[in-house]
Every structure is written in C-alpha cells, then in structure tokens.
Design a protein around this nucleic acid. Structure first.
Lengths: 354, 354
DNA sequence: GCAGAGTGCTTAACCGGTAAAGGAGACGAC
DNA sequence: GTCGTCTCCTTTACCGGTTAAGCACTCTGC
C-alpha cells in the first residue's frame, strides 16, 4: 500500500532509515541486495521503502556510481530528414524498445553537422550525461571515430565495421544485398542499370555504390551512379538527368524509400511507364513504397531489430568498458519484388543473347 | 588552447581550484557569475577552467540545484505508429530544435498504454530524471492529467486545452479547421460526406468528429463518422465499409496522412475514381500525401513549430513552477487543395438546388 | 577464559557541485 | 585607536546516494 508521495518532499533513504530505526548505510545495503544484513532487517527496510514509494534519485546515484543510465544518439542530418525517411523513426523504435526494458533513458539531439555532433559528444561525456552513444551515418574518414576513442566514450558504430576495428559496430552485408539486386535486374534482361545513391561521403552509401560497380562489371552490364543529398529534390534532379540521356537506363535502384518514391513520380511525369520503360527499386521498405502505383520493389531490412541489436551492443560495450565487444552482423537486406520492376523493354535478353 | 582531456580522469572544480590557488567555493562563484570575486581572480579562474576543458558534472549539479535539465516525452502508441506517421518525427524535430538551443536534453520513451505511461511519469519524477513532460494524445477523462497534478510534475498538454485549465496547454482550433473543410466540400457540391477518425478516445479526434457533425448538420449535409485505431489496416476496413454502402459518400476526410493514403488505395482498388467518384482529404501533410496519385488535398499544419511552441511553454512552466502559464493557441490547420478533391459526381449541387 | 572468526550493523568519507556563513585585511570615520 | 563596513576569499554544510572501514557482539574451539 504505497502511500501518496504527493507534491511534497522527495522520499530519500534517510526517511527510510529513520522509520526503520537503522542507519542509511544499512538501507543502502538492503536496497542494493548486498550482504551483511539479517533477513528480518532487510525485509523490514524493503517493506518500508515500498510503503513510502521510494525511488533512487538518479543524480545522486550517478554521482557515486559514475553512471548516467542514459544512452545518446545524435543525428547530424537536416531536421527534415528525420521526419521524412522511414529509417530513423523505425531505428529509434528498436532502440527504445531495448532501452526501456532496462530503464535506461535515450537522450536524443539533432545537430547541423559533424563538427557540432563531435562537440555534443564532448559535452555529454564531460557532463557525464550519457554512458555511451550510437553513431549513425558513418562517413569516409569520419572525424567522430577518432574523437570518440580519444575521449574514451563508449560507442557503437551503426553501419560499420570500422577499418582498424577500434570501435565495436553493427553492420549489414551491403555487398551481398547489392549483388542480389543486380543479379535480379540482369535476370530480367536489364543491361543499362543505374543507381541513385545518397551522400557519397557516407560509408553505407559509398560501399553500396562500389558493390554496384563491381557487380555490374562482373555481369557485363552498364552501370551508372548519380549522387544526391537524400532530399526528394535531389532525387528528382538525379532521375531527370538519368532519363534525359539518349540511352537512359532501363532500371534505377535508389538508396532510400524517399528517393525512390520521388524518382518514380518524376519518371511517370516524364512519360516513362513503370515498369514498362524503366524498373524502379527502393532501399528500405516503408508504407511509402507500398502505397504508390506501382508499389515499389525494395531491399527490405528489419530496421527496428537493427536498432535493438545496436543498442544491446552498446550496453555491452558500456559494461565491458571498451574491452572487445567487436562487430556484429545483422541479417542483410532481402529483395522484396513488387510491381515496379519487370523485364527490360524490347526483350533485351534476346538481343544480348544474339 | 584547451588541453586534451583524454580518456583520463574528469576535470572537476577541485582541479581548477588547485591550479588557480583558490578554494572550490571561489571557483563555483566564478563559473556561475556570482558577485564577490575580484575581476582578476574571476578571469584567471575562467581561463584555467577553459584550459582544462571543464564542463559541469550534470549529476552533481542536479543534486544541489534540483534540476535534471531534461524534458520527457512518452508515447503510448504502438511503436509502429512512431515510424509510420508524419506527426511524431516532425513534432520531435521541433521540440529538439527548441531544447538543444538551451542544452536541455530530451528523454524519450515508448509505452504500451496509458497506465504504464503514468508509471513512467511517476518514476521519472521520483528519480528527478526530468524537470517536466510533454503530454500528447490527450484522452477523454485522461487519467494522466490528474496524476501529473498530484505529483506536481510540470507538464504541458499538447492538444488541450484541458477542462478546468489545471495544466497549461498548446492547442489548435480544430473546429475552425473542420468547418473550413466541410464548407469546402459543400461548395464542391458534396452532400454525402464521411469522416474516418482516429481513436475516438483521443480528444483531438473526438473534438474534430464533433465539429464535423455540427458543421455537416448546419450545412444540411449527410455526415457519417467511422472509427479506426490509426493503423492502415483499420483505415482500409473503414473505407471499404463506407464505399460498400448503397449510397456511398462522395467525399471522405481522414484523420491522418497514413489513414488517407491507405483509404485512397482501397477506393481505387474498389473501382472508385478519385476524385471523380469520391474525393479524399488527409489531415496533416507529408511526403506521403504528395507522392500518391492523385496527390492528396490536406489540412496542413506547421508541426515542427507546434513542437517548438509546446516546448517553450513547458520550459516556462518549469521556471514558473506551476504558476499560470495558461493555454497557447497555435496557428490552425489550413486547407491545401490538391488533386484528390473535386466536384461531387452527378452535379449534386444542381440536384440539391432544385 | 580468552583468542579468532563471523555476523550485523554504524560511522564517516566520498562523488562534484552549490551556497550560506564566517573571517582576514584594507579603508574610512569619529 | 577602535569600530564599522566593504571587499574578497575560505570554510563548511548540504544535495542523496554508495562503500570502505570500524566496532560491538555472539559463537566456536581449545
């Protein structure tokens, strides 16, 4: 029968100690399940703590335990991206699910660029506001990894692994997914294929592009890559550019759901039938991909699980405090064929076979 | 020239005091800009603090200042909703923008239902993990408001105002927006109009429905309302139900972007031309509404600003500590006509005029 | 009958800040 | 000369926990 805490003074272990007629040290032992108390005293203290509705004061505990019981996540993309793309909210949902089960808080912040992101890490760690951070959107020669190591702030790289293996990471086999995609398009008879990538400075985007080049070369396809900044506008521009070519690609693979949906709209506006004239593939499934016409073929991943996995990895890194943890591979993206992909126009397969 | 903090021991005010040859009290005065120090000493202390790269330990400060420097937000909807609907990420982005400028953290948590949400508030407040919370998805007879008042936890109701005015709130004039919408549909000649609402237990959804009934009655239209649980599946069911009627509505207004987009798909699948046979309107604009064919007419709000506004309101409530703050009205949703709405089929206006 | 070990609790220091109270020294007034 | 006042800094207590060290008491063994 927990009494009403009301808006009055907080219940502290001193209150418990007084009521139980013991010292506050004894109360602390009881509440933390440490040995050195008789069964009866322990039970009495716990009962009183419950009656008074006691909860530990986070700051007080952090001060001695040197634990913030919070993990951090900084997003250094424009705020709009957060809202527009399926990846982040889904990833967040997965992270949250993992954290809330252990009463660890998630501290979220948006930053304008990588430099201010690093500044946030520095501040968070100096203030001991977080115990560790999840790092997303790894860049080529990323300044964050070096700084995180220097600070000694536990971190997990989402989308690694990192060269050198200095920080633990979670990752997908992007290469295998790209190979599956390119083989699929080749099997449909496509010869001129293109990829609309995200920001080339991002490791996940550039590694997919590299895999794309390799796979098209191996299968003797013509492969082009155009860059964007993940905004719908840049995707529209990229698509227009590709389809204005005298010999436009007959299949375009995009690096996100937003890019693909925008590209689809542009293609249709330009009079291209989808998938009659051009096939379209998205990366990461979402409602967006399913409601357009035709619905988009995608490379789907279980993003919430990815978030949970990253989170577990981070919590482990915090406990180990740096030792090992290593890299963990998540299930790779799987091709989900829908209406936006079909055979290459003009039976390219026959022409090529001749 | 801030020296490297490295992975070593934290810099504390004791380190600064020692290096400056003063007591830690003096350092505290200097760092907090309090009077009682000579100009030179103050400057020296600040310089050394900067050199050592000192940041206040959040927990230590919280312990005496009784401030967590964090705000809380609990979402008691299924995790999927977070990812699927435009509202939350956009709202979050607005909240974040406001908070990060004052180095207040946002603590986010997902809950399965209102009861566990209340439990989270109780815990957060007892642990002094947050200074205040934003409450979204206000329900009819919401148990949260009473509990928040009882606890004395500063809170802002998003989507109020609350009857009784006990807690400060931010709100839109939903009624005016609904009236504008219904007038617009009536002007297009629609007589049988329907509304697909969200969860009827939510205040914003039920108040819109009430306004919808009132507005249709006033304009002598036939108005129906069907409920959903905000999932695409429930919207598909609702739409199918409405359009299977012997006298189906010629215009359907949905309570979110997701509901509307799903409804559009179902309508087209059932052979209804949009907007030829049935007009469709969404609530809250998003990329989703713009990429479908036809693009959806929406009631658009500036959601990030709404988030920022709510956040400023909360910070004020925390400072005042309960006194006043009151309710603040945000700009109401504006109708953005696009291709999904058109004249009622069969020149309903003429028939009605006869 | 007393050393030694174990049990069960208390005391006190500490984490890193904030802030009230106190005190040394300079200076002016009478 | 000494009293009051002002400036500038130190001392100290405190926030709410954790934890090492200490200590009284009982039990055991010889």
């Amino acid at each position: 029968m927990a009494t009403k805490a009301g808006a009055g003074r907080r219940v502290t272990i001193n209150d418990i100690a007084e009521k139980a007629g013991v010292s506050k040290g004894a109360v602390s032992y009881a509440l933390n399940g440490r040995p050195g108390l008789s069964k009866e005293t322990r039970a009495r203290i716990l009962r009183i703590a419950d009656e008074l509705g006691w909860h530990p004061h986070r700051a007080a505990r952090s001060l001695s335990a040197a634990r913030a019981d919070a993990c951090g996540l900084v997003l250094a993309r424009p705020a709009r991206t957060l809202a527009i793309e399926a990846f982040f909210p889904e990833f967040l949902a997965g992270v949250e699910a993992e954290l809330s089960s252990r009463s660890v808080a998630l501290t979220l912040q948006l930053a304008s660029d990588v430099d201010s992101e690093v500044a946030i890490y520095r501040r968070w760690w100096a203030e001991r506001r977080v115990d560790g951070v999840l790092v997303v959107d790894l860049r080529v020669n990323d300044p964050r990894t070096e700084e995180l190591q220097r600070l000694g702030l536990p971190a997990v790289i989402v989308g690694g692994p990192l060269e050198g293996g200095a920080l633990p990471s979670v990752w997908h086999d992007e290469r295998a997914a790209v190979v599956e995609l390119v083989r699929y398009l080749a099997a449909l008879g496509h010869v001129r294929v293109a990829r609309v990538e995200g920001v080339p400075g991002f490791v996940h985007s550039s590694s997919r592009s590299k895999a794309f080049y390799d796979a098209t070369r191996e299968l003797e396809l013509s492969g082009r890559v155009v860059s964007t900044d993940y905004t719908p506008e840049s995707s529209a521009r990229a698509t227009r550019q590709l389809l204005s070519d005298p010999e436009p690609p007959t299949a375009i693979a995009y690096d996100s759901d937003v890019l693909a949906v925008t590209g689809l709209g542009v293609a249709q506006q330009m009079g291209f039938a989808v998938p009659g004239d051009v096939s379209i593939v998205a990366w990461d499934d979402s409602l967006l991909c399913q409601v357009v016409h035709p619905p988009l073929t995608t490379l789907s991943r279980d993003i919430p699980s990815y978030g949970s996995l990253a989170c577990r990895q981070l919590l482990a890194a915090i406990d180990d405090h740096g030792t090992s943890s290593g890299d963990v591979e998540a299930p790779r993206a799987e091709l989900t064929p829908r209406g936006s992909t079909g055979p290459a126009p003009g039976d390219a397969r026959a022409a090529r076979g001749a």
